[in-house]
Design a binder for these strands. Sequence first.
DNA 1: AAAAGCCCCTGGATGC
DNA 2: TGCATCCAGGGGCTTT
Length: 293
Amino acid sequence: MPESEVPHRNVFTMPELPEVEITKRGVDAKFKGHTLRELTVRQPKLRWPVPQTVQACVGLPLVALARRSKYLLMDFGQHVLVVHLGMSGSLKIVSPQQPWDKHDHIQWLFDSDGSTGALRLNDPRRFGSVEYFEKRIETPADPYAHFGRFAALGPEPFSEAFQPESFYQSLRGRKLNIKTLLLSGKAVVGVGNIYACEALFRSQISPGRSASRVSRAQASLLYTSIVDVLSEAIERGGSTLRNFQAIDGELGHFQLHCDVYGRAGEKCKRCEGTIKRRVMGQRGTFYCPVCQK
DNA sequence: AAAAGCCCCTGGATGC
DNA sequence: TGCATCCAGGGGCTTT
């Protein structure tokens, strides 16, 4: 069956790891190596107040972009800005002359080959954040490890630290349901509500199953599903980005295809069941009660 | 220590 | 048509 005919639901997502990764690549392609000339904070009331210290980056070149979990890191050398898109945030590349949108909160004005280019954070619900950290030069291997809560985060899904057996071990003895545990960032980071539902569907594990009752074989399947579902989303985002790059635009959102998320009441893609929605850990959870055990 | 609950905010959906 | 009400949702923090 051609991919276009696969019965998926299109969801215009909140920013998850793939959106942050694509945003990172877009900012990297446009502004890496360019000097920050102005940083305008129109609305400092985000998830946390945007500190005055962010101004320490002005006048410095953007030397690197990085991502940790769903945090986007803008590395200005000794000074680093950590951006989180929350649930409605996005970064967009615009002309500095473009009128401000109601929800454009922050603007980075970069030198751009003799002219200037602007990057804006737009976030209607203001669950996003921009934080400032100073890099510790004495730990060059992982200069960001000590930032805020980073030390407490689980492994990155695409890192060497994320392996089937260690993943299985991190589930053992946890009575919490597997879906909520995935969202907690303890066993792996960057798996948000949508991808948790999708990965559990692929591995045919019920979201309500206690993590301690996920077998080694199931954990292995879930491990693969997590890596696959995130990789595929990044690929889709990559093609979205190519389109956006031609016109400049919003980097933080793109459409993705879901088997279960947002499909309550519809037919299961794999069996004769009907997709159900229930709330777990205060989040909407979509699954097939027939083929997910 | 682990798990559950709370809260920030606004657009969209729903009800009258 | 318009106004009031309700609710989702990431994830850190607080409470149990």
